[in-house]
Amino acid sequence: MAQERELILAFETSCDETSVAVVENGNRILSNFVATQIKSHQRFGGVVPEVASRHHIEEITIGIHKALTEADVTVADLTAVAVTYGPGLVGSLLIGVTAAKTFAFAHQLPLIPVNHMAGHIYAAHYVEPFSFPLLALLVSGGHTQIVLMTAADQFEIIGDTRDDAAGEAFDKVGRVLGINYPAGKEIDRLAHEGHDVYDFPRAMIHEANYDFSFSGLKSAFINKVHNAEQRQETLNRADLAASFQASVVDVLVAKVSAALEKYPVQQLVLAGGVAANHGLRDALKETLATRYPQTRLVAAPLPLCGDNAAMIGAAAHVELADKHFAKMDLNADPSLEFAWQA
């Protein structure tokens, strides 16, 4: 049976994680090496592209070695190589793309290009198999989208942010509160200790579309803190965090609900870095249970919400079945996006 094992060596370097994984048959993680640069970026209050690229270079060959060793496979066992080619920071993407191309060329393996956002969605595929059509809420530092999947390799955007991504709003508000990058986890924790007392705006919540806007919320938050400072008042940090998070969660849940009215699918995938937010997970779970019992929440496992190569390997499995291979001229595409629904 050994020859029926499909083994993909997957690379992910789109932002500040260097990750290499070995995935079997698209649904089993044999290894998932992740070197994070968060410690180094905390000093800077965010990702520094040049620093990120250097870290990727330092980690990537170590990552290949560790991923293969831990998976207990040799190069000869591999079926294909997969890599994130966008979206992301161009300097970071290029390290993964170059490493994957070199590896594939040297070992005569097919090269599978993967959209990072497809990878995020496929992180949830490790929880249960997908049934189509399905909806996915993708929330991260760079994206806030509702995606309709009509087949394993068909992704259509039906809603998107008009300005800031949800994760970006968490990080920027975190900066105002003096919370280190990335701020999402700490705001989530604080929010559970506070109450939604400041009643921040819920932008676009009543508009008849699936789009988002978080820039106004960021401004309202800054104004609130700034005005209190001028009056020499100190606001309760937990209440600020709870009020901010409640606004973000309310809007996300409302737009997902509107999408479910139009597309009563069986599965709602929740993925991306902000998918780790407990407030969001709980609110979606409750909304589905009470209003959309036909729809199951398929949330990406917590360890796979952030960037990692295992999710890229899962998405690549679908592309491998379609024989969507890249040539050796594959380039990074920092602005890569799914298409809007026609």
Partner: peptide
């Protein structure tokens, strides 16, 4: 729509 370029630096 013009989205925040913070994440990718350039749009």
């Amino acid at each position: 729509p013009v989205k925040s370029p913070t994440f990718t630096i350039i749009r």
